[in-house]
Amino acid sequence: MQVSLLQCQSSTDVKANLAFIDSQLSLLPRKANEPQLVVLPECSLLFGGHEQQQLAVAAVEESSKLKQQLAALAQRHHVYMVAGTIPISADAARVYSRSYLFDDEGNTLGSYDKLHLFDVEVADKTQSYRESDTFCPGDRITVIDTPFGKIGLAICYDIRFADLFRALRLAGAEIIALPSAFTKVTGAAHWQTLIQARAIETQCYFLAADQWGQHNQGSRETWGQSMIVDPWGRVIAEKKTGLGWVQAQLDVTALATIRQQIPVVAHNRFIAPQLK
């Protein structure tokens, strides 16, 4: 069972970003007739400018051209796809940061809206991030049954909130996909540590696809290091810098063995987390 993460350097040019993803899917290393799960990073079709630009390309789900274009890529290249994130209209002033999971015919299997919004101060050129000015937080968790296993969805800043990932595990997640655009500063400090910790805690495979490099003449800079981490916390594949694919085979038998040997769900004496 092969999974592939695409590390991108997305810009504010939607057409160019879409063309890059299309070209990379054409070059995707794969065996004939082998099912393929692809994960794109956060904001893979529009990134690096002012967050208000998300409003200009947002639409309701039924008429979203961005959603239609990504679904068409999944169908054309015959891949299951966690399609990064795109803006979906929430109200007149804000959008959801939504991740879709498409099957290899372009059908929507499920979606997730980013729960935790990145309103923080960072010692970089941007300095102050205020996602809540543009984005509306989600109100649900998502676990989707697929031929690869039960896939839980989370996005970028969510990785800092362990309760979400415990809730995903309790909802049946075996694999967790994490489209991200981690800043270079916070990525250098915490990216790998957080992903490995969440993988160990949940005993899930983590598929963390990240943006990398300087975006739009250096106005934003992201960390990269897209990685696949197993339920024991081992990094089984990663791409620290540059653009392109990170690939690995997932072993569901190993996942079951780890959960049997260390049954943390049964041993946990705290009540299950609930979304407030």
Rank of each mutant, 00 (worst) to 15 (best):
A83S: 14
A93S: 14
I159L: 12
S97P: 01
D124N: 13
Y157R: 01
L117V: 11
T142H: 00
L164R: 09
D139L: 00
S111H: 13
D91Q: 09
S97D: 14
D104C: 03
D103I: 04
M81A: 10
T142W: 01
G84A: 10
G149A: 10
F118G: 01
K150V: 00
P137W: 02
F161K: 09
R160S: 05
S111Y: 14
A93L: 15
P147F: 04
Q127V: 14
F148L: 07
R160E: 10
T142G: 01
F161P: 00
G106N: 07
S132F: 10
S128P: 00
D119E: 08
F135D: 02
S97I: 08
L101S: 00
I155A: 05
Y96I: 11
F148Q: 08
F148D: 01
D133W: 13
D104K: 02
A93G: 13
G138S: 08
V95P: 03
L153T: 05
T142C: 12
Y157N: 08
Y129W: 15
A123Y: 05
V143W: 02
D119H: 12
D133F: 14
G110T: 12
N107Y: 10
D163R: 12
S111V: 09
S97V: 05
T146K: 06
L101F: 01
A90S: 09
T126K: 15
P137L: 03
A162C: 01
F135S: 09
R130M: 12
T108N: 10
F118N: 13
S111L: 12
D104A: 09
A154Y: 00
Y80E: 02
T108D: 07
S89C: 04
V120K: 15
I159F: 03
E121H: 11
S89I: 11
C156L: 05
S132G: 05
V143K: 06
H116C: 12
D163C: 06
R98C: 06
L117W: 04
T146W: 03
E105H: 14
Y80H: 08
S89V: 10
S97N: 15
S99K: 02
P87V: 06
R130W: 09
L164N: 06
R98D: 07
A154F: 02
S132Y: 05
Y96G: 11
P137R: 10
P87T: 08
Y80S: 02
V122Q: 06
L164K: 09
D158Q: 04
R94L: 07
I141D: 05
L153K: 01
G84Y: 04
L101R: 00
A123R: 14
R160V: 06
Y100T: 07
Y129E: 05
L109Y: 01
L109W: 05
R98E: 13
A123G: 00
L153V: 09
A93R: 14
I151H: 03
Y100N: 01
Y157F: 14
R94D: 07
R140H: 13
F161H: 13
M81C: 10
D124V: 04
K114G: 08
A93Q: 15
G106C: 09
G138V: 03
Y100E: 04
A92G: 12
R160I: 07
E131G: 08
E105V: 06
R94H: 15
C136I: 04
S128L: 15
H116W: 07
C156S: 07
A162R: 11
E121A: 13
N107R: 15
L153M: 10
T126P: 00
R140M: 04
A90H: 06
V95I: 11
K125F: 06
T126W: 09
